[in-house]
C-alpha cells in the first residue's frame, strides 16, 4: 500500500480518477465514447480535445521548470502566434489555399521560436531571474499581439487551418494527435537520451553542471525555445478552434494553468527533476475540472472558486510539510483541505 502511495504519480492519478468518477453522478453517460461519421465523440474525447493546448504548453513549461526556471510569457506567445497566423491567412486572396496556410503556420511558429530565443538569451546570457525575464514578454506580448491584429478580432474561414484545432484525422481530433506526437517526441528525447538528465543537472545547479562540462547556457536557451514553440502550436490550435485571433483574450492566464498542471503533476518549482507523465495528468485534471463544472450547470465564472479549492487541496496534499502536520498519527486518507487551511 505505502509503496503505491509513495509513487510520485499516485496522487495526481488518484485525483484525476476521483474527478472522472465524480462526473458519473452528474452524467451517467460520461464514459461513453461513440463513433459518429467516423469521428470519435464523447466527454472524454472533449476533455482531450480542449485540453490539448494546455497539455502542449505544460510540456514546454515542464522543460523550463526542470531547469529551475519558469516561463510566464507563454500566454502572450499563444496570442502572438494565433494573431500572426490569422492575420496572414486573412490577407490572402484564397483562405482555403493549403500553401498559404502552411506559410502562415511556419511564420507563426518561426516567430514563436524567436520569442523563445529572446527569453532564453535573457535568462542564460544576461543572467536575469527567469520569472522576471519572462515577465517582460508577458507584459509586452499582448500589446504586440494587438499590434499585429490592429486591435481587432480577426475572423477567418479556412478549412485547412481549422484542421489544426477543431477537425478530425483518422477519427481522432487532430489537436490530440499533435499533443500525442509532441509528448512522445519529448519523452523519447529526454528519457531515451541523456538530454533529460542534462536538463535536470542544469536545474539542480547550473554552475556545477557547467563545471562538469555540460553546456548549461545552451540547454537553458533550448528549454525556453521549446516552451515558446509549444506555446506557438497551442496558439494555432486555440485560434483555429474558434476561427479567430483575439490578441487580448487568447490564452489569457494559460501560463498559470500550465504552471499549475506542472506542479500538480509532481514537478517541483525548485527544478532539478521533472515528470512528463505527471504534467499530462496535471493538465487533464485542470481540464476535467473545467468540463465537470460546465456539465453540472454552475455558472462558468464560478469555476474559479472550485479551481482555487482544488489547487489548494492538491498542493497541500503534495506538500510534505502539510502532510507531516496534518497526518502525523493517521493513515493518509482523503483530507478536507478547505478546513485544514484554517490555522489551528
Amino acid at each position: 500500500m505505502t509503496a503505491i502511495t509513495k509513487h510520485r504519480l499516485f496522487w495526481p492519478a488518484a485525483i484525476l480518477a476521483v474527478m472522472l468518477l465524480a462526473n458519473l453522478i452528474f452524467t451517467p453517460t460520461f464514459f461513453r465514447i461513440e463513433l459518429k461519421n467516423g469521428h470519435l465523440y464523447g466527454s472524454l474525447i472533449d476533455i482531450l480535445l480542449y485540453g490539448a493546448p494546455l497539455i502542449l504548453i505544460a510540456l514546454g513549461m515542464t522543460m523550463v521548470i526542470a531547469t529551475g526556471g519558469i516561463d510566464l510569457s507563454v500566454g502572450a506567445t499563444v496570442a502572438i502566434s494565433g494573431a500572426l497566423a490569422c492575420s496572414i491567412i486573412a490577407d490572402q486572396p484564397d483562405q482555403e489555399a493549403v500553401g498559404g496556410v502552411l506559410t502562415a503556420v511556419a511564420l507563426a511558429l518561426g516567430l514563436s521560436l524567436v520569442l523563445g530565443l529572446w527569453n532564453g538569451l535573457l535568462v542564460a546570457r544576461v543572467g536575469i531571474q527567469p520569472i522576471i525575464a519572462t515577465l517582460i514578454l508577458m507584459v509586452a506580448g499582448r500589446g504586440v499581439a494587438q499590434l499585429i491584429t490592429d486591435g481587432q478580432i480577426i475572423t477567418i474561414n479556412s478549412a485547412p487551418y481549422e484542421l489544426i484545432g477543431g477537425d478530425y484525422l483518422f477519427g481522432f481530433p487532430f489537436a490530440v494527435l499533435i499533443a500525442v506526437v509532441v509528448f512522445t517526441g519529448t519523452a523519447v528525447l529526454t528519457r531515451r537520451t541523456a538530454l533529460g538528465l542534462l536538463l535536470e543537472a542544469v536545474g539542480g545547479n547550473a554552475e556545477a553542471s557547467r563545471l562538469v562540462g555540460i553546456r548549461a547556457r545552451r540547454l537553458l536557451v533550448l528549454a525556453y525555445v521549446f516552451s515558446a514553440f509549444c506555446a506557438g502550436i497551442a496558439g494555432l490550435m486555440i485560434s483555429s478552434n474558434i476561427r479567430a485571433a483575439d490578441g487580448n483574450n487568447a490564452g489569457l492566464w494559460i501560463e498559470l494553468d500550465a504552471i499549475l498542471a506542472v506542479v500538480i503533476g509532481g514537478t517541483s518549482l525548485m527544478g532539478g527533476r521533472f515528470s512528463l507523465a505527471g504534467t499530462v495528468l496535471g493538465a487533464l485534471i485542470i481540464q476535467t475540472l473545467s468540463t465537470t463544472i460546465y456539465t453540472t450547470g454552475v455558472p462558468p465564472q464560478v469555476t474559479l472558486v472550485f479551481k482555487a479549492v482544488v489547487v489548494t487541496a492538491v498542493c497541500l496534499i503534495q506538500s510534505p510539510a502539510f502532510r507531516a502536520k496534518a497526518f502525523r498519527r493517521r493513515r493518509p486518507s482523503a483530507p478536507a483541505p478547505a478546513e485544514a487551511e484554517v490555522p489551528a
Partner: peptide
C-alpha cells in the same frame, strides 16, 4: 500562512488566492 507553514511556493499559493477572489466576485 499556507506559504510559510506548508512551504507552498508564493507563486502557487497566491495564484490559488487569485482564483478564489475572482470566483467569489462572481
Amino acid at each position: 500562512y499556507v506559504i510559510h507553514h506548508f512551504e507552498i511556493q508564493p507563486f502557487i499559493a497566491t495564484l490559488a488566492g487569485m482564483f478564489l477572489a475572482r470566483g467569489l466576485c462572481f
